[in-house]
């Protein structure tokens, strides 16, 4: 889809109407090779990870096999094995899938809540705005990382779902604040007033008329949040406050490097996961920046 449109733009058909949003983004990616590579890399990586993870039996993967302890990369294990003789490659795939799934869910949940609250408070202003902004101030002042850690240590049996929810509780505030500030100025525009004079209801104005005009900001915010959430999840898992130990995550793989012996002698235990995190974050950021640029005519390359 994206590629087809790029071709259309390059042909430069005469009397063409000004490019639409998708065309602008496509052109920006065509111009920025790094962003294009990142985008393709992300698509391929995520597809491979999700398809491959279906083929792996997690229980068998996590079974300890002392004969293969610290096996070096080779025929049997492409990326070697860890202290318990478990395949690193399989853990990497499952771990990456878990990390990305969690990051996507958190991004979507916080995005939907943050955008809805931001748009509503910004549009109505007044006491609604006041109440929500005080709640947001409260969430920003409390040390959220500490509370997530405490929560995870207290709750006896937590799953992926509880982990996602507890992260979402604290992460919607940033999006809400950003969206609110944009909605505040957007809702004072004449076209919103004009729409009111037609008798359009507030809900329709907020979500069908105001939101599309903020879409560029929303897309950028969600993309960069996604990168941030991958980082946060792996960080928590690294510290041991992420998923349960039986469920691999990119963070738990990196945490193998805490053991100086492994750090020195078994690079295959921690290096692949670290590299994957690095590449993933870089790629998401490059894509996000390209989208951000295409939202602002002055920064565009294409």
């Amino acid at each position: 889809m994206a590629e087809k449109q790029t071709v259309d733009v390059e042909k430069k058909t005469p009397a063409a109407s000004p490019p639409t949003g998708i065309q602008v983004i496509a052109r920006e990616f065509a111009k920025d090779k790094l962003a294009m590579t990142s985008l393709l890399f992300l698509i391929v990586l995520i597809t491979v990870i999700y398809v491959w993870s279906f083929l792996i039996d997690q229980e068998q993967l996590m079974r300890i096999s002392l004969r293969d302890q610290m096996a070096a990369p080779g025929e049997k294990y492409w990326l070697g094995a860890d202290k318990g003789g478990r395949d690193i490659l399989g853990q990497l795939i499952i771990g990456a899938r878990n990390s990305i799934t969690i990051a996507i869910s958190v991004t979507l949940i916080t995005g939907i809540i943050g955008i809805a609250i931001g748009l509503i408070t910004g549009y109505f202003g007044g006491w609604i705005d006041n109440i929500f902004m005080r709640i947001i101030d409260f969430f920003i002042t409390i040390p959220s990382l500490m509370i997530i850690i405490v929560f995870i240590s207290i709750v006896p049996k937590y799953t992926v779902v509880t982990f996602v929810l507890i992260m979402s509780v604290f992460l919607w505030v940033g999006t809400a604040r950003l969206v609110r500030s944009k909605a505040l100025s957007e809702s004072r525009r004449d076209y919103i007033n004009a729409s009111k004079t037609m008798g359009t209801s507030d809900g329709v104005i907020i979500f069908k008329e105001m939101m599309p005009n903020l879409s560029s900001i929303l897309i950028v915010e969600m993309t960069l949040n996604f990168a941030g959430n991958v980082g946060l999840e792996t960080g928590l898992s690294y510290l041991g406050f992420g998923l349960p130990p039986s469920t691999p995550s990119l963070g738990t793989l990196v945490a193998y490097a805490n053991d100086p012996f492994i750090l020195e002698n078994a690079w295959w235990n921690w290096l692949p996961a670290s590299l994957l995190i690095l590449l993933l974050m870089l790629a998401i950021n490059y894509v996000g920046q390209a989208i951000r640029r295409s939202a602002d005519a002055r920064q565009r390359l294409g």
Binding site: R189, D190, Y191, N193, A194, S195, K196, T197, M198, G199, T200, E209, N213
Partner: peptide, 18 residues
């Protein structure tokens, strides 16, 4: 609004949803 009373705004660009 809209049905019985219509309004014409001053700045035609900002009064239309872009």
């Amino acid at each position: 609004r809209g049905n019985d009373i219509g309004m014409i705004f001053q700045d035609p660009l900002s009064a239309l949803n872009p």
